[in-house]
Design a protein around this nucleic acid. Sequence first.
RNA 1: GGAGAGGUCGCAUAGUGGACUAGUGCGUUCGUCUUGAAAACGAAUGUGGCGCAAGCCACCGUGGGUUCGAAUCCCACCCUCUCCGCCA
Length: 406
Amino acid sequence: MLDIKFIRENQKLVEEKSAQKGYSPNIKKLLEVDGSRRKLIEEVDKLRSDRKAAAGIRDEEKGTKIKSSLKIKEDELEKLNEEFYTLVREVPNLPKDDVPLGPDDKSDKVIKEAGKKSKFAFAPKDHLELGVGLDLIDVDRASKTSGARFGFIKNELVILELALVRLAFDLLTAEGFIAVIPPVIINKKIAEGLGYPEYETGEGYKLDDQFLVGTAEHSIVPMHMDETFGESDLPKRYVGFSTAFRREAGSYGKDTRGIFRVHQFDKVEMVSFVDPKDDDKEHQFLLSLEEKMVGQLGLPYRVVNKAAGELGFPTAQKYDIEIWIPSQKMYRETHSASTNTDFQSRRLNIKYQSKNQKGYVYILNATAFAIGRTLIAIMENYQQKDGSILVPKALQKYTGFSKIPR
RNA sequence: GGAGAGGUCGCAUAGUGGACUAGUGCGUUCGUCUUGAAAACGAAUGUGGCGCAAGCCACCGUGGGUUCGAAUCCCACCCUCUCCGCCA
């Protein structure tokens, strides 16, 4: 949620920047409602004040009179409030100034390429072919038990997953991140507070009155709802492991092969709560940690500054890391690092207070490992001519083996 | 799942229809005293909304209701704790 005062004073800017992200909130209507709402608040406050005075001198006649006119005004105000909050919540977070303009990923700006694209003296297989050949992935039986876009991960690939988790936790706890395994179910109030349209429109995985999280961030961020951080509490950093659930509505026919795009996968995620002035610094820090981890696996990757149209509703800026996938001859997204500035903290009421300042904290999140896609990247980039797969050096101390043999 | 107890200002507690403008203790901050500190004493100390301001209003788990007037009475819900049951 944006600050209504900011919207009031920057109507043009809010409209322009929303449009850059592909949203068109009705700012004109919002400001109209805001105006009448404020006027009505004054009227209601005055009546309440009168009521208090009348009750003080036991003036029952006057009290009865005030009571009936107050009831009408209060009902009116309640309606206006509803309208106001509906409208103000339709305004997305604004993209920062150095976000590339453009409606889709064609406008993404590549800011770095690192590592050498893998070259093979043979025709490389894709992850599914490798996975089936070595009995590491079974999507056929998963479709039997669960439906399309699910998979069983098996044998050495399971150990490789656990190794990735350990690598991330070892590195990040050494950096001072607090390790956490969060709940994967959140309640309605929290889902609304996060400001993700997929929850608001019911497109997320909805249970009775709860939702399955799309990422660990969704329960780690609201951990601190209604709390105020002291100066020494910030930055507060978490590294969480959880399963992530995705509806993938609207992606019919896209990435249907194997486990590249599935409804359920495991992920290690970073979340930071920081002083607003440290936003950029923290964003770069999270990105550098992602690069460090991908670098340790020896995978070729690039970093992109995502275009405005690609940013989620609460996001002000996002860097993605894309790893080279040989079978697709493309870089594909495996990591993203976003700042949501104070957009979520405002709605979830997460503040900081230092000696001379107080306000809403800035909240950032970044992928440590989206495990499914990282496994795909490892399998494809480390495949050998005979169909076996080598294990990246950095993982070998966790796996206890250096090769997944044929 | 069953039974009971409870949710009040940062923490602990008082408050069962009007003097609550929510008291008290602890904590915190400032001041006095002191070479300095402690102690003692004094004062200040929640969040949010509206307003240029003076100020007004809201908030005692949440939402409704009763009343001229609600922290207090009524209804529903949420959460916590204790005991029992079940269970990885």
